[in-house]
């Protein structure tokens, strides 16, 4: 166990370096000339402008040289300058990271909540209608494209019913809270702005539900399996014999023990949510890393693409590492190193 964790931790920096290298190389073996997106197509015929831009952005140096410079800058937290926003990529990312984290954390909470509820119900009514409906609901959430289900819920709850606000993080007429943590939920509270806080929560509800729905199935399947496992044990029988109410047995005795294995997959769902966030943010006009990645890719903004890919890769690596470790700690029967990636 200890040896496994150490091995994984030692491998981390190498994998991270691999991620950086691949991300860097990908955007440099490119068919499109990055200069087009820097100086615009019309100026491409002007050799002086082209040469100046080449020098200014370091594109006149050889690839290994550019790579080493990039690595050196990364160490100091410098991801380069975005072609599009003309801001340091690191600054763009830091400003946008809280929005993504807020969305992903809210989605994780909602998805886990749905998942546990469905899983408990499915285990309680095993093989019945509720069990099958729960499975279908979770399966649809995992299979439907978020950029489509997002549109549908926006249409139904925002346009038709008018219950919830449309895209964005806060009411368009409201002023964004002063930047402290970047989490609007926390920042509005710190500013004592209750109407703002309410608006932020309401704006968060739809995108977080849509995104959380995608991981509901992962959680509910796990909860159902471990609940069934727990429910067949003798202490449950003992609790029933003692006269504990069915609900109490289910929630107090069974669920508490069934939760342990469930905790392990939260890391896994986190990795899954990073992917979903990219598309959810686009639909909900959410100013996070995901929508930044999309506009960077559309605009052939190479420094931004490399930066986002590296950050995404790092987050993914850490989430996967934590999942594997949690998995190993909770369930020693798991054979480490034998897990196939998916």
């Amino acid at each position: 166990m200890f040896a496994y964790v150490t091995k994984r931790l030692i491998a981390m920096p190498f994998l991270l370096l691999g991620v950086i290298t691949v991300a860097f190389l990908l955007t440099h073996f490119t068919a499109a000339d990055p200069l087009t997106s820097i100086i615009g197509e019309r100026q491409m015929n002007n050799p002086e402008v082209v040469e100046a831009a080449r020098q200014r952005w370091g594109l006149d140096r050889s690839l290994p040289e550019q790579y080493l410079v990039y690595l050196g800058n990364l160490v100091t937290g410098d991801f380069g300058t975005s072609f599009r926003t003309r801001q340091p990529v690191a600054q763009d990312l830091i400003l946008r990271l809280p929005a993504t984290l807020e969305l992903v954390i809210a989605a994780m909470m909602l998805g886990t909540l749905f998942g546990i509820t469905l899983g408990v119900l499915a285990a309680r009514f095993r093989g019945g209608v509720i069990d099958n409906l729960a499975r279908l609901f979770a399966l649809i959430g995992a299979s439907a494209p978020v950029f489509w289900s997002g549109l549908l819920v926006l249409f139904v709850f925002s346009v038709q019913l008018g219950w919830l606000p449309g895209p964005g993080r806060i009411d368009a007429r409201a002023v964004a809270p002063p930047f402290v943590t970047g989490f609007f939920t926390i920042d509005t509270l710190l500013a004592g702005d209750w109407t703002g806080f309410r608006s932020v929560l309401l704006h968060l509800l739809l995108p977080a539900s849509v995104l959380g729905w995608t991981v509901t199935g992962i959680v509910s399947r796990m909860v159902r399996a471990s609940m069934l496992d727990v429910l067949s044990q003798e202490y449950i029988l003992a609790a029933r014999a003692k006269g504990a109410s069915p609900v109490r047995v289910l929630l107090h005795h069974a669920l508490r023990n069934a939760m342990l294995p469930t905790l392990t997959i939260i890391g896994f769902s986190f990795a899954y949510l990073i992917t979903g966030a990219v598309l959810t943010e686009t639909i909900f006009a959410w100013p996070g890393i995901g929508s930044y990645a999309v506009s960077a890719a559309r605009g052939l903004d190479h420094p931004a693409i490399v930066g986002v890919t590296i950050i995404g890769g790092a987050a993914f690596l850490i989430a996967n590492l934590l999942t594997d470790i949690a998995y190993a700690v909770v369930d020693p029967r798991v054979k480490l190193g034998a897990k196939a990636g998916a």
Binding site: L15, T27, H28, A32, T275, I305, T309
Partner: peptide, 24 residues
């Protein structure tokens, strides 16, 4: 297998976006 590990370290959609963006 190191190539495999590194490739699997990316969130699929980000990697696909980066590759598509650079190929056009």
């Amino acid at each position: 297998m190191r190539f495999v590990d590194i490739t699997l370290s990316f969130p699929p959609i980000l990697l696909a976006m980066a590759v598509t963006a650079s190929l056009g």
